[in-house]
Design a binder for these strands. Structure first.
Lengths: 349, 349
DNA sequence: CTGAAAGCGCTAACAT
DNA sequence: ATGTTAGCGCTTTCAG
């Protein structure tokens, strides 16, 4: 492997001059500089980031930990992060933790050993355990899709409570009385808050809460399918379902079909995320849009602010947007509820 | 930032001893070792991978470049790679190139500067240009989903020609005569070969090839949608469509619906990839399954073989598997073709 | 079993 | 404008 010294020898200068020339320092004679760079080119020389990092004390690398890269939600987040990282000349170290707090910690530690300049964690489950770790590490860390309220940590999320509220309200306004919640079993903060939003929406209109109507999957369609099957087997099944995420919603719709139900007429479904494919589903999925790409960009932006000595906002909360498509309609037999709430025409049948 | 010297001072030993103790060298007194490790722990010390890499001449890092991480196909490949990397204690550097050969080269060069131990490239468009680059770099590189036949390079792909063949044959056997191809505009090798397979299948049964029936998208659903719309606007539109990938197939089905066509009765669609969501689509998508996760694992496995001095196979070709689901049926009015080909019952109407 | 010393590739004072 | 020297954090001979 060819180093700065090799090309110094070839150009008959000192290695410092080579170092300078290669970085276009003005302190070096243009001619020499050109000669050096030509030789470097010929030899196919490229700086060693590791040598450089050792003295510069930065690696121009950031670490990103997500639950699973195969989950399109995370993929889009990462895509936003990468976009910003690129504009700063940074590279991305990627690790997955599969919602395992232990793996999450290991990933972060591995990043620390590699001396990344900053860390981004999506859907963290570790939360408060970070404090002591961070005290040692002294590496900026930004959370995406989870927030630690008592902490002075940085995070960007959507308002999950509001998202749950919007989704459920939409169903309520359509006239649904039996609305199920298909959550995430891992106890993510996002799940807790979306669920709380769901409960709030129910309370707003005095629809009694029925614990039978809440089930949990793992965020993937297969699990969602079996969870939904349980719901549909109920003596008094729901007429609408709010799902923790779009992937779950796809599983739910599949389960419903296999149960002989038509979507949306027999079961309305609303998801959360608005994945790329959600608008291409049949029926197109009603959902709460999360600005995933933008969240990734903002999180990375926050990090770079920090790295350049600025003081960005600690807590960025975005608003999810209800996207009404084709998977939600009024329930089969409740024309009354429809006119009262949905149409707002005051024609309270 | 605390270093090996700091803890050497605290433990009143030399930094070499600390280095040994921390790596559980047998050459150090168990008592001393324990003492050192305790102190290190207390101080929250973690080795610097950059210092270590400089002397070890390896970074325990591999670089992965994909077209887009938001494409589930790539996401699953990466997921397989990550799985194997993890078992070897390696980290992943991730970059996207958006099918831009230039960005692909830049990503690879950036990886080289960072002194990754190996590089994995999915859906490369650069191809032969790598040879000179690699001559300098001396970094093992493995291609996924593209293969350079004249080269001695490593690659893992599915047999794309065969995949195109299988997909189209399936349609032919169902009795379709007008079969469209929705390709990828970027001139990927995968596209060329799938298209060739399509042509072969058509020739096998003497179905005349109609150039009007081939259109191109960019691999995403939106583009596929408009491309399909063009196809459907034809005076004599296709009754079946073979799509470069599942994402395109979703777009195609969406376009068909908007055109007032029912899937599969008015238009049969077969995709290629078998994404997680493909079986949850409505109708469930008939497709050629690519063992994405396994391909990622194999590619990473090949790399680690190389890194440990073995000589793995240079060219791993896997077989795509036809998964018949609900998006393909015989065309509306050609019962003859059905009985002849599909049912093989010889009852040639 | 431990320490001293050298060196990995690079940058940055500090001299010229 | 260029060279010399030191040092980033670590591993590894080589001596004890």
């Amino acid at each position: 492997m060819i180093s700065i010294k090799d090309i110094a020898r070839a150009a008959d200068v000192s290695h410092s001059t080579v170092s300078r020339a290669l970085r276009n320092s003005p302190l070096v004679n243009p001619e020499t500089s050109l000669r050096i760079r030509t030789i470097a080119q010929e030899k196919g020389y490229r700086v060693s980031a590791v040598g450089r990092s050792l003295v510069n004390r930065r690696t121009d690398t950031i670490g990103v930990v997500v639950t699973s890269i195969a989950d399109p939600f995370n993929a889009e987040i990462v895509s936003g992060i990468e976009e910003i990282a690129l504009t700063h000349g940074y590279s991305l170290l990627l690790a997955t933790c599969h919602s395992d707090p232990n793996r999450e910690m290991l990933a972060v530690q591995s990043f620390y050993e590699r001396r990344v300049d900053g860390i981004l964690v999506s859907s963290s489950r570790v939360g408060s355990l970070y404090r002591p770790m961070l005290a040692d590490m002294k590496v900026p860390i930004i959370f995406i899709n989870s927030h630690h309220p008592d902490d002075d940590m940085f995070s960007v999320t959507i308002d999950n409570h509001n998202a749950g509220l919007q989704a459920t309200r939409h169903l309520v306004q359509l006239g649904h009385k039996r609305i199920g919640y298909l959550g995430n079993q891992f106890g993510l903060q996002a799940d807790t808050q979306r669920y709380a939003g769901y409960r709030s929406a129910l309370e707003e209109v005095d629809i009694g809460f029925d614990p039978e109507l809440v089930v949990h999957g793992n965020g993937g369609p297969e699990n969602a399918k079996s969870a939904t099957a349980r719901l549909l087997a109920l003596a008094n099944p729901p007429t609408a379902l709010f799902c923790f995420n779009d992937m779950s919603a796809f599983g739910a719709m599949c389960a419903a079909r296999e149960h002989g139900l038509a979507i949306p007429s027999d079961l309305s479904v609303v998801g959360l995320d608005d994945l790329l494919l959600s608008s291409y589903a049949e029926p197109a999925l009603t959902t709460i849009r999360q600005p995933k790409h933008e969240m990734g960009r903002l999180a990375a932006g926050t990090l770079f602010q920090l790295l350049s000595g600025n003081s960005p906002e600690r807590f960025i909360s975005m608003r999810g947007e209800l996207i009404v498509r084709k998977s939600t309609v009024p329930p089969r037999s409740s024309a009354d509820a429809i006119s009262t709430n949905h149409q707002k025409s005051g024609a309270g049948a």
